[in-house]
Structure formats: structure tokens, C-alpha cells
Design a protein around this nucleic acid. Structure first.
Lengths: 207, 207
DNA sequence: GTGATATTATGACAAGGTGTCATATAACAC
DNA sequence: GTGTTATATGACACCTTGTCATAATATCAC
């Protein structure tokens, strides 16, 4: 999380820094990114950087955070539109999500970011925000045989599916296959189907 | 993967290096680990390290690889013992797996390792081995409504579950809850149940 | 305005890490 | 032995990082 000082900066400087970060984290994954580069790009002195953020991970997490907010909102909206049906809603959401994060402007950043799974629950800051943002995903639990208290688990599962499918997209793209986006989408839908209907034959115990 | 030179080393030196790596990767996750430390511990000159491995990631991957082999074997054995029932087999396997990787000797290493998901399909070397080792998991597909061609996907899913459950163990342990292992195990079993039977109510289309 | 106080800005610096390369050494073929 | 190839070694150039003493600005009381 940025230190308070960051928010006191004039808008222009804030934007310059964010843009520089976005650029550097598009070049390489966060572990290889260098603060030296970022401050050079943003044209701020090195010392200042540490006035605003703890380190590059903190900075990176903030950039991701800014986007995550929007995604959760988008996701929630679609769920509402689908009357709480988490499956059809997530399927549609993933397609739109995939379109956005693979757009010219963002592709490199998200490739670098998601391959080191941002949603790793370890980093408390992301975690916290994660929770608050999604606690009420507007899922209709009457359609499900699980309890609402398992909300958190379900959410985590769906995100995990999306990450897997997105990686599948990246692999497909690298291999130059025909329509990597469609393939990834189908991959995601398969996982959704498994989760919805189970993969065990016959003796279902669902009511 | 180690360069051929590594395998020409006398056993003692190989072991010294592996042990040093294990120690350093127990201290910190691979990204923070330092080759300087490793060579100091192993008492080999810095230049030699690069004769054996490309970099620390290569080295780390090799250490993980050594263990993975054994795990896959263990997993496969249990599946066979359970007549190909992937669900009960995986449940049992996870318990044993959890016991092993949380034992005194290995706990720190695996904590550092799994929090940066080793099974990230990105690193080709791990990936390749991954496949070959598990291609025939001895799963009885007659119990499932999915095709054997989806083997790879199913495997990946199960591994993902285990990683999640293991992280749950780490969180529980950090928070000092009562029986983190049992909790993680139950967590895993819940995910297995979801995958087996699905979470959607009523209109299952299973035969 | 003035002086006191708190906040922010700056960049040089110590500490430490990385991968390479020229050179030394050993191993082997014949 | 000589010639050839494989391995060992550690100094080195280069690059990062986070800190800290110092300078510059705000902010505020009156």
C-alpha cells in the first residue's frame, strides 16, 4: 500500500510514477524489475521512491490493486445480471476479462503479473482487499448445494480456474495455435462444468 | 537441469552442493536465495557453480525434481491400491504428502518452495518431467464421466487443490489454530467432493 | 512577517549480489 | 612425452538495493 505521502503528491507526479511502474512491470516480472529503472522513467530521485512505497512489491501490488477493484465490480455486475447464477456469469466474465488483459496496452503487464500469481493469498495486503471487495458476490446459493459460508472457498476456486485458463491462453499463444482465446475460454468452461456437475459417474448424492 | 559436468562430480561433492542448496532454499524462497551463500556452504568456488547449473532457479528446480519423482510414485501406488479411484486415493495421498513435507527436516524448504508455486507450468523443465512422470496415473476412468484424454487437466486440477490446501495449512499454522493438518486435509477433501459430485443443485446431467 | 516545527526531497554511499572470463589445472588419447 | 579437451578458480565489472545526512519546503502560531 502506498504511504500517505504518495497521495499528497500532485496528480501529475503520481501518474508519472504509476506509468513508469506499469512500463517496467511490462518489461519483466516484478522480481526482475528494478527500482532504478522505475525512478529513471518517472524522473524522480531514488530516495523519493522509498518515501512513497516500501519496495517494488508494494508498488506492484498497488498497481494490481487498482485494476482488481474494477474487475470485481465487473464480475459482480454480471452475476447480478444473471440472477446470481455464478456459472454462466463467470463464463461470460472470463471472456471479457481475457479480452481486456490481452489488449495491446495491457498484455505484457498481465503476462508478467499473472505468471507469478498475484492472488497468492500470502501477501496480506492483496488478501485483505480481495476479501472486502468480493465478500458479497451476489451469488444465488439456492442454485447450489453448498452453504453460503463456503463463499470464500468458492471464490478462490473460481479465481484459480481463471488463472489456469489464462496461463493456457499464454501457452497457446506462444505455440501459435489458432485461436488461443477461444481455447482458453473453453478450458475455463470445462473447469466450470466439472465444478458445477462433478466428474464422478452415477452415484451422485445431490438432492 | 544440471549440466553434464555436475554428474561427473564425485558423489561427495554432489551431495555437498545439494545439501547446501537445500539449506539455502530453506532459509529463504528461491528469489531471495543467493548463490554466494550456496557456494560458501558447499565450499566450492563460485565459478564452479556455473559449471554445473545455469542459475539458482535451475538448481532449485533440480532439487524439487528429485522429490517430485518420489511423490508421483507414491501417488500412483496409492491409486493402484484403491483400484483406480482417484478421489479416495488422492485424499489419502494428500495426508501422507502433508506429513512428509511438514516434517522437521523439510518444512522450511517446502514452505519457501510452494508459496511460489513450483508447479507453475511455465518452467519447461519441470513441466516436461511433470508430464512424463504422471501420464499414466492409473486412474480408473470408468468411474468418471470425463474422457481419458482429459487426464492432464484432471491431474493439474488435483495438484492445484493440494497446493491450495497446503497453503491453508501454512496459514492455519501461522495463526496457531488447533490442528492445522487436519484442517488442511478437510479443506482438500471438500475440494475433492466438489470436483467429484459438483456443487450445482438438482439438474445434474450425469448418467 | 518571523521563527519554530514537521514534512518531504535528494543523491551519494555501503553492502552485497550476479555472471563472465582469462588463466591454471587435470584428464585423457596415443 | 605431446597435444587436445574438459574442468576449476576467483578476481572483476556491473548492477541493485535501502539508508541516511543534509537540503529544501510547507505549515503553523502569533
Amino acid at each position: 500500500m502506498p504511504k500517505p505521502t504518495f497521495f499528497n503528491l500532485d496528480q501529475a507526479k503520481q501518474q508519472r510514477l504509476l506509468a513508469a511502474g506499469f512500463q517496467e512491470f511490462s518489461r519483466v516480472p516484478v522480481h526482475e524489475a528494478s527500482i532504478s529503472n522505475i525512478v529513471k522513467l518517472a524522473k524522480i530521485p531514488r530516495g523519493s521512491f522509498y518515501q512513497y512505497f516500501t519496495d517494488k512489491f508494494d508498488f506492484h501490488a498497488y498497481l494490481v490493486h487498482l485494476y482488481k477493484q474494477r474487475w470485481y465490480q465487473m464480475w459482480r455486475q454480471i452475476i447480478v445480471a444473471k440472477n446470481g447464477d455464478i456459472f454462466t456469469a463467470s463464463s461470460q466474465f472470463f471472456k471479457e476479462f481475457l479480452d481486456k488483459i490481452t489488449s495491446q496496452k495491457h498484455a505484457a503487464f498481465w503476462k508478467n503479473t499473472f505468471n507469478i500469481d498475484v492472488f497468492q493469498e500470502e501477501r496480506q495486503y492483496l488478501m485483505q482487499n480481495h476479501q472486502s471487495a468480493i465478500d458479497d458476490l451476489m451469488i444465488n446459493y439456492q442454485l447450489l448445494r453448498i452453504k453460503k459460508s463456503q463463499n470464500e472457498l468458492l471464490k478462490r476456486q473460481l479465481i484459480s480456474f481463471m488463472m489456469q485458463a489464462f496461463r493456457q491462453y499464454l501457452i497457446g499463444q506462444k505455440q501459435g495455435i489458432d485461436n488461443p482465446k477461444r481455447v482458453a475460454s473453453e478450458y475455463f468452461d470445462t473447469l466450470l462444468d466439472w465444478l458445477a456437475n462433478g466428474i464422478k459417474k452415477g452415484d451422485q448424492t445431490n438432492d
